[in-house]
């Protein structure tokens, strides 16, 4: 019987990574922009709300 060679397309396995990357990049960019702004506010809030 003649064996037929099939195309495997292994890159399909990387599709989850491909679709996750834009989201992760967006999240990382948002963190890069906003975390430095939020951090001092958080520190002040902690000092106001928590009793040392």
């Amino acid at each position: 019987m003649k064996k037929v060679k099939t195309v495997r397309r292994p890159l399909y396995w990387l599709l989850p990574l491909l679709f996750a990357l834009p989201l992760l990049a967006g999240g990382a960019y948002a963190a890069y922009c906003y975390v430095p702004k939020i951090k001092p506010l958080l520190e002040v809030a902690l000092k106001v709300v928590l009793i040392p």
Binding site: L15, P16, L17, L18, F19, A20, L23, L24
Partner: peptide
């Protein structure tokens, strides 16, 4: 792909 991506 979407399920895997959200898992990641």
């Amino acid at each position: 792909a979407a399920c895997g991506a959200s898992g990641l």
